[in-house]
Nucleic acid binder design. Structure first.
Lengths: 132, 132
DNA sequence: TTATTATAGATTTTCAAAGTCGTTAATGGA
DNA sequence: TCCATTAACGACTTTGAAAATCTATAATAA
């Protein structure tokens, strides 16, 4: 089990948007260059982030992406969910009559991780980077 | 990102071993029948559990599998690690000079989940099932 | 010795992630 | 009004790991 590379891209792209000046939108071209990944592929992640309401997009000259909310209000979980979806990471494939107790345990464990990721904001990272 | 179905099989197989009488080993044939999965495929999971030291195997007539430790000493994390491996579920693919701060956050989050899974023993489940 | 059972390796199938390509739509500037 | 720029969309291909099967081998009890 692993987080997709797409999530890695998205997290780094978001971090870049935070550190970039907020008035000038950043295009996928520049973004892809900075990260060293394919422009067309990265744009798919960006679109997902837009649909999740985390960033704003503008087409045309001087278009690009910018944050939609304050960076203190964007959590790691927001970004991960935008890319990976919100489905549980464990699904019992057996047909017990009632609820699967095993599944319940793993889902509870997952919830622990999610709470941590929910409390970690992208702004925290930017702060850490500056103070180092 | 999802836990593999193999993990699902392994967890259920372990649960069955706990509830089964401890003196008579359980063969993969019976186990596969109970779970409704392929015998040859399930045997691969069982072999992994053996190598992880969670269960004991015996070939030949009246052979099969039995727990190696007490069920209070076998955690969900033990089983999951035996099947999925112990690699981190996030690996940054970029080459920053130093450590990747993003990766650090996700790994810390993962640690939260693992602690929960480490504290949940397979014996807890068996207990819950009886009291219901 | 024989039936039984686990182990091992090779192989195939399946499917989602990773990535590419071409087209369309929207916008600002000339 | 036209053009360059940029995001969005859909179809498609490639890649790789999970899922599953098959066959052969080794170990053990009766």
């Amino acid at each position: 089990m692993k987080y997709s590379q797409a999530t890695d891209y998205a997290l780094h792209a978001m971090l870049y948007l935070v550190t970039a000046a907020s008035d000038k939108p950043v295009g996928v071209q520049l973004l892809a260059e900075k990260l060293g990944v394919s422009q067309t592929y990265l744009s798919k992640m960006m679109t997902k982030l837009v649909k999740a309401g985390l960033i704003q997009s503008a087409p045309g000259a001087n278009g690009g992406y910018r944050l939609r909310r304050k960076s203190e209000d964007i959590s790691f979980l927001d970004i991960i969910h935008a890319i990976e979806g919100t489905a549980s990471l464990f699904e019992c494939s057996f047909d017990h009559g009632s609820e699967c107790l095993i599944q319940q345990v793993v889902i509870d464990a997952e919830r622990q991780m999610e709470q941590y990721l929910e409390n970690k904001k992208i702004a925290d990272l930017a702060k850490t980077m500056k103070t180092e």
